[in-house]
Write a protein that binds this DNA or RNA. Structure first.
Lengths: 339, 339
DNA sequence: GGGAAACCTTGGAACGTTCCCATATATCTT
DNA sequence: AAGATATATGGGAACGTTCCAAGGTTTCCC
């Protein structure tokens, strides 16, 4: 194991002190141009790589923030992570990813041992309450509707109620006067979307009903079948998410209903599946990338002392971002004969 | 910023030396039971968290391995990462995730600065050749078909040729005698799958043709349309992956062909979409979880000195794992009238 | 009962940085 | 010309661990 190159090797080769080399490499403080160049050149020649652990020791700063992802299997978080990543980088911080489902609470321990400067919780994080309690004094921001909220963490999320309202407006504008919602009560997104749906339907004087389904395809299939097989069936279905909408799509097909001729169908989240030509599902696109950016900036602010330098932690704050409707081929005017 | 509690605080409270505390906390070496208990208790009371950076300094070992993921958007890697994660843990190593598309070569720099003990490359990693050159002396394993192979890295991958052969056998057994393949030549998976397809079709004396498509839905749609609109159309289509298969599905629908009545369709990768009821696509399930495990064990062996303690790096080795066919509703016997 | 082997304990050195301070020189200000 | 400021330089301490060597017990075996 050839001992790796240290800053002392670089300093020696450049003919300067280790302090000067350190300054030159980081680009802070006073170093003459000549020395700076010599140091940089020596570093390049030797293939010098700063040792992150030693740097963390010396500076008492790790420069990293931990991102706890809810579930890698559900890549809805990708745009959010992109936004986070970019904005964190601008603040001189580096993200480290971990999967909550996969690693569980040891993940939090690991982040704490790495002395992360802040934590971003991405998604719902089922059953994370106890683990989250451990991060108490650290700056934390949660992006996406939280179930387990870390004590005092700021929350940046999409305005799910508004998204649901937009779906109703879209369907109503197409002429639908009887809409059913396949909901997922008890989940944060489920509750917000249902509330938005019902409020707007009421406001627009559209007949509506909400049935309990769930967030999975299976749940959408079952609830869809129930609603569509009933005596008086709605002309449009709004599912709590794209998965449930796809389940409902299967249910409609089973019953011989064509989408969108006999039934309009809308989902939520604008997942890649919704965009498939074979599916073409009308959905709602969360401004997740922007949410990630906002969260990162918020966190950077909290880490950098925050707006209340004396207080132990900035007060919990909730930022809501408006989503965007993506109309596709699964929604159309209702059949004329109906009603 | 209350200075965090160190091992010295723990040692003082337990009434032992820092060395004893260190030994007790790690569970190595000789410590009396009484002291061990006292130390553990003191640590718990104080909420002691070892400082990973300091530990890395002292031991000259980081205990972490970097996982470079090709693209978070394509969650095919999840089972592989699960397998990796579990097996690495058993070897006392911790995985750190990074996304190649998102972060690019700075990701490699970061891993090197963190002094990771090994690197796992997950997936194809387009354009990563130069970055990968930098990891030269580190143990590295690549899981999934590589395009950019790190010099001397071992490769653990799925036997794509075998998977393609199984698809052909399945279709032939159903009675198909004319099969087309929508391929993605030039990509590692594309080439292997096409070769397997053609070899088996030839062996079974089944008429076949391969057309160039690509790995996306769009590519599958275009190539599917071309093949299906031709004068003599095949009774079955085998696409290079599920996305392309879904594109072909749309093409078939556009042409008024019902799947599987008029046309059987198979994909590859067994993505969640293939499993959706509304889709029901016959596909091939890669043994990715197992691939991850094998890769992790291989890497752990390389890190722990490896089978050739003198050599600079174990010779590149390729492990092939057999995949499994998942027959679903998109494949059926061909229509009797045809041919 | 004498020596070896196992068990236990500890203080100091080392790891590779950054930070802090002391000092030196150049450049401005009046 | 005398300070004041900005610029530059380097030596030593600190960060929180693990490792090492050295010493002290106990246990075991012949």
């Amino acid at each position: 194991m050839a001992r790796s190159v240290t800053i002392l090797d670089v300093a020696a080769r450049a003919g300067v002190s280790k302090s000067a080399a350190s300054l030159a490499l980081r680009g802070t403080g006073y170093v003459s141009d000549a020395k700076r160049r010599a140091v940089l050149e020596a570093a390049a020649e030797l293939g010098y790589r700063p040792n992150a652990a030693a740097r963390a020791m010396g500076s008492r700063r790790s420069g990293i923030v931990g991102l706890i992802l809810d579930d890698l299997r559900n890549p809805w978080f990708v745009p959010a992570v992109e936004g986070l990543s970019a904005a964190l980088h601008d603040a001189g911080l580096r993200p480290l990813l971990g999967d909550w489902r996969l690693e569980g609470s040891p993940l939090v321990d690991r982040f704490l041992e790495l002395r992360v400067e802040g934590i971003v919780l991405v998604g719902t994080l089922d059953g994370a309450e106890s683990a989250l309690a451990g991060i108490a004094p650290l700056p934390a921001v949660q992006v996406g509707s939280p179930r387990a909220q870390a004590a005092g963490a700021a929350v940046v999320t999409n305005d799910d109620a508004e998204g649901a309202r937009r779906v109703v407006r879209h369907l109503a504008a197409l002429g639908h006067r009887d809409i059913a919602h396949l909901g997922a009560p008890g989940t944060p997104v489920g509750d917000a979307r249902r509330t938005g749906f019902e409020d707007e339907a009421r406001r627009l004087r559209v007949a509506f009903r909400s049935v309990d389904a769930g967030l999975t395809e299976e749940a959408g299939y079952r609830a869809g079948k129930e609603v569509l097989a009933a005596a008086h069936r709605p002309t449009a279905l709004f599912a709590v998410n794209d998965m449930a909408a796809l389940g409902a799509l299967s249910a409609a097909e089973d019953l011989g209903l064509a989408v969108p001729r006999d039934l309009s169908l809308a989902g939520y989240d604008d997942t890649p599946v919704a965009r498939l030509r074979a599916v073409g599902l009308t959905s709602v696109d969360n401004a997740s990338r922007e949410a990630g950016q906002v969260a990162a900036r918020l966190l950077a602010e909290l880490i950098g002392g925050g707006p209340l330098p004396g207080a132990p932690r900035a007060t919990a704050e909730t930022v809501l971002l408006p989503p965007e409707l993506k109309a596709r081929s699964s929604t159309a005017p209702p059949p004329a004969v109906v009603r």
